[in-house]
Amino acid sequence: RVNMTETQVKEYLSEEIRRKWLAVDRIVATPSGKSMPTVPREVVEQQLWGAAEYLVRSGVLDHVVELLATIAMLHDVVTDRMVDELAKNVIRPLGLLIDGLTRTSLVEVIGRALADPELEKALVEAKEDKKISIRTLISLLNDAEVRRGLYITLVLLKALGKSAKEI
């Protein structure tokens, strides 16, 4: 095993740890009601040493230490006031937005509209600077679907205006 590559060592250690952890899963109850492993203490210590060696060799321990240091830093920096402001100015409005979107079919309607091939065609024409005449725009107003979409857009704009006035 001395001639193993680093990848082979990692694979061997992970398999060895999995095999050893399965042995520790067998627990028996003692008369006092506490549980104790059925394997001897030396075997448990050997497994712990193997796990520690795996964590060090694989670099996982370094990442855990960095993560814990970051959490400690954040704990020192974040104040109760910051959490309150975040909740009031970000989380609550986001929750209200999600609640509003899930109670209506607006997201589904917009999603279907964006997938419409006519919209893609219009985007291509607009990108190519194709002349769009007033007559074309007025003829679109005669279309029942355009009027329905315009109605929904205007009602949405009205609701936005009302909401902006309340804030």
Rank of each mutant, 00 (worst) to 15 (best):
N3D: 12
T5F: 00
T7L: 05
Q8H: 00
Y12T: 00
S14R: 14
L22R: 15
A29N: 11
P31A: 05
K34D: 14
M36E: 09
T38D: 11
E42M: 04
V43I: 06
E45N: 09
L48G: 07
E53R: 14
Y54G: 01
Y54K: 02
L55Y: 06
V64C: 04
T70R: 15
D76I: 02
V77G: 01
V78M: 10
V78A: 04
E85C: 07
A87K: 11
N89C: 08
V90D: 10
I91N: 07
I91W: 13
L94K: 05
G95D: 03
G95C: 02
L96S: 07
L97I: 08
L97P: 02
R103D: 10
T104Q: 03
S105Y: 06
V109L: 13
A113L: 11
L114S: 04
L119D: 02
E120H: 14
E120K: 12
V124A: 15
A126D: 08
D129C: 12
D129H: 13
K131W: 11
K131Y: 14
I132V: 15
I134G: 08
R135K: 13
N142L: 10
E145W: 04
R148G: 05
G149W: 06
Y151K: 13
Y151S: 14
T153E: 05
L157P: 00
L160K: 07
K165F: 09
